[in-house]
Amino acid sequence: MAAAISIQGLTKKYVDVWQKQEVVAVNNLNLEVQEGEIFGFLGRNGAGKTTTIKMLLGLIFPTDGDATLLGKPMGDNEVKRELAYLPEETYFYDSMTGWDILDYYARLFKIPEPERSRRVQICLEKVRLQPDAWRRSIRGYSKGMRQRTGIAQALINDPKLLFLDEPTSGLDPIAHAELRDIVASLKDEGKTVFLSSHQLADVELICSRVAIIHRGKLLTEGKISDLVAGDYAEVVAQGKELNSVIGQLKEFAPGSEITGGDTLRVTLPDDEKINAVIDVVRGAKAKIISVVPHKRTLEDVFVETVRKEDGS
């Protein structure tokens, strides 16, 4: 599979004019995004996600480094035909209707009528904006409707590569779920999506690969399944005779321990031996308090990674 985005050593620095202090927004970023995947670009606010996207789109200019989009150098005007960008928190032209905004963006792609109207309609339908709102001024739109319009404008040129910056933030649960599904459906159309977000649950659901960026530095990247590897289960029980079985339990789980004289905590690397542990515990007439299979989430990975970086 060809790389939709290939970033080499991308760096963006700012200089504090008065104190000559250097601020590195993006630091020597290297990244590859394959065609057809939904790539999650994760990071805290101010980590450098938006800066990276803006550099890739030629809105700002890198201090160093290079990148190609769909095989063309970034900033190339022609490759923009195949791109789309939904910026975070865009305040669209308030007085215009949803239809007119899409019509305007379609004109920027020089899409002629009647194709233009057809495209506008397809896009508005695709983002499930209620038809009765199409001809209403955007001023009366809810946040979710505006965001739908934003995604619709990104789809107007049927792009191959989409950059979506926090498309689901601040939405109500229903709108959130719907928009997430719309983004997920783009994959089925063979589009590549570069999704910048800190809605980690969404990313985990719809992305195949992610990268974590922190203070401009790429901390980790890879398949989600690889990153979240390392599930475990925990059994907690209470009983006076547990001391007698601790040695037996340590065979399953070396980390087993008894605290407070009668509380047992057994941590298992997987759930295969849960039944065996439970049998031993019940044999010791102890009361099982909880059996919790711990699933490692992207959130855990993210927090761990970032904390580790900050700690070091």
Partner: peptide, 15 residues
């Protein structure tokens, strides 16, 4: 620039 609509314009094939 303030409304960020310029991002949506310049990220399209607009010089």
């Amino acid at each position: 620039i303030e409304r960020r609509t310029i991002y949506t314009i310049l990220s399209k094939p607009v010089q």
